[in-house]
Design a binder for these strands. Structure first.
Length: 306
DNA sequence: AAGACGAAAGTGGTTGA
DNA sequence: TCAACAACTTTCGTCTT
């Protein structure tokens, strides 16, 4: 186990820390402070679970949140060789049994279905394991706070998944997620916001750059065009014409412009479709981009050529 | 005929009194 | 709690290629 394990936020003192494994950062959920870069401690659990007066220590590799019993049931009785276990393993074994008995509680039963649904959708959408895990954790917290009551289980799963994707910089649009559920975008968005508010989850606004890569590959654009689009977005960021605007609209417009400049012309319709925005939005962003980045002349030249 | 452009009216969420 | 507000959408008519 590594030394220097962090349990408290040096800024606000909150113990509610969130470990972003993908980025290797520990983030305080309360104040958003990034506490340490490059955490390599893979055996640490980042959040304690209320286990009723028991020792809160954990032994062994991290438990998974994607199983309703945290992945314990698959292990119980597998080897069956208690005598060969070390004392710490024995302790874990008994704890696992304890968890297994909890499956009968309503919350655990609900979790069982919810996590099965999550798994199905996550694989359908190719969501990375980390984000799926986190979504499971969010759902569990929501369930324990009784936030599922009065809402459909699916919408909470969808909301949790969306929140987790946002938190991990996994660019999945609300549209894509809603396609995997028998729900509409509005309801998922609503639940998503509700969950974030109730669980105090801090979500950073997504950057247009997160979307560029994916939209571009769907449009079969060349890498050169993609980097051009990213360049455009960076400039736009500097000029502060991106704040408050929908990131997908900006990503779409940047790609549209970049495609024009690189001779890979796509129609506004094409770009709008993959980005999940309308042509009108692209036009608006496009106009702003041309104005502020002084690209009008370049575009004109290309128009004349064609 | 298809694509680009823009005006006008409507939607859902945020904000601030 | 309600009204103002910004971003975005829908719809539709008009140009341009």
């Amino acid at each position: 186990m590594k030394s220097g394990k962090i349990t408290k936020c040096p800024n606000c003192g909150s113990k509610d820390l969130y470990w972003d494994r993908k980025r290797g950062e520990v983030i305080c959920k309360k104040c958003g402070l990034v506490i340490e870069d490059k955490v390599i401690d893979f055996s640490q659990e980042w959040r304690e679970f209320s286990d009723q007066g028991e020792s809160k220590r954990r032994v062994g590799s991290p438990l998974t949140y994607t199983k309703h019993d945290k992945g314990l049931s698959t292990k119980i009785g597998k080897s069956g060789d208690l005598s060969k276990m070390s004392p710490s393993e024995k302790r874990m074994y008994y704890r696992m049994k304890k968890w297994q008995t909890r499956i009968s509680t309503p919350i655990e039963r609900n979790l069982k279905f919810a996590l099965a649904e999550l798994k199905r959708v996550a694989s359908f959408l190719d969501v990375p394991k980390i984000a799926e895990e986190d979504a499971a954790m969010i759902y569990r917290m929501a369930a324990e706070k009784g936030l599922v009551r009065g809402r459909s289980m699916e919408s909470v799963v969808a909301g949790a998944l969306y929140a987790s994707c946002r938190r991990h910089g996994v660019p999945r649009t609300l549209d894509e997620i809603s396609n995997a559920f028998p729900l509409d975008k509005k309801e998922i968005g609503k639940t998503y916001r509700f969950i974030c508010r109730e669980l105090r989850i801090r979500i950073l606004p997504t950057s247009p750059q997160d979307y560029v890569q994916r939209f571009a590959s769907e449009l079969h654009l060349k890498p050169k065009t993609v980097s051009r689009a990213v360049e455009i977005i960076k400039k736009a960021n500097k000029l502060e014409i991106t704040s408050g605007k929908g990131p997908m609209g900006i990503a779409a417009a940047a790609l549209y412009v970049a495609a024009l400049l690189c001779g890979e012309k796509k129609t506004q319709r094409d770009v709008a479709d993959v980005a999940g925005v309308t042509e009108v939005t692209i036009r608006n962003r496009y106009k702003e981009l041309l104005e502020k980045l002084k690209l009008e002349d370049q575009i004109k030249k290309i128009r004349e050529k064609a």
